[in-house]
């Protein structure tokens, strides 16, 4: 099975994987996120459909909040 990297952690990749699938898999429910796939920022309105290719480097940056 293929892999992708999310914030430095390797996870399984599957066919037709989207940004939304990655967020669900990682349980990233925080709302203040900036997402980059292979260095390209993905707009919030595209999260449901933006494809994540096998081997992608995905950065899901949580803007701090909290505390």
């Amino acid at each position: 099975m293929g892999k992708i990297t999310v914030n430095g952690h390797e996870i399984d990749w599957n066919d037709n994987m989207t940004v939304r699938n990655v967020l669900d898999r990682m349980k990233y429910s925080f709302r203040m996120l900036v997402i980059k796939v292979n260095g390209t920022i993905v707009k919030r309105e595209d999260w449901e459909t933006f494809p994540v290719p096998e081997g992608a480097d995905v950065k899901v940056i949580h803007l701090m909040s909290g505390g």
Partner: peptide, 18 residues
């Protein structure tokens, strides 16, 4: 008390300060 520093997302989630 967390009012000095709340670094969990930077550290544990974003992996920005390894």
């Amino acid at each position: 008390q967390h009012d000095e520093a709340w670094l969990i997302f930077m550290d544990m989630v974003n992996n920005h300060i390894p």
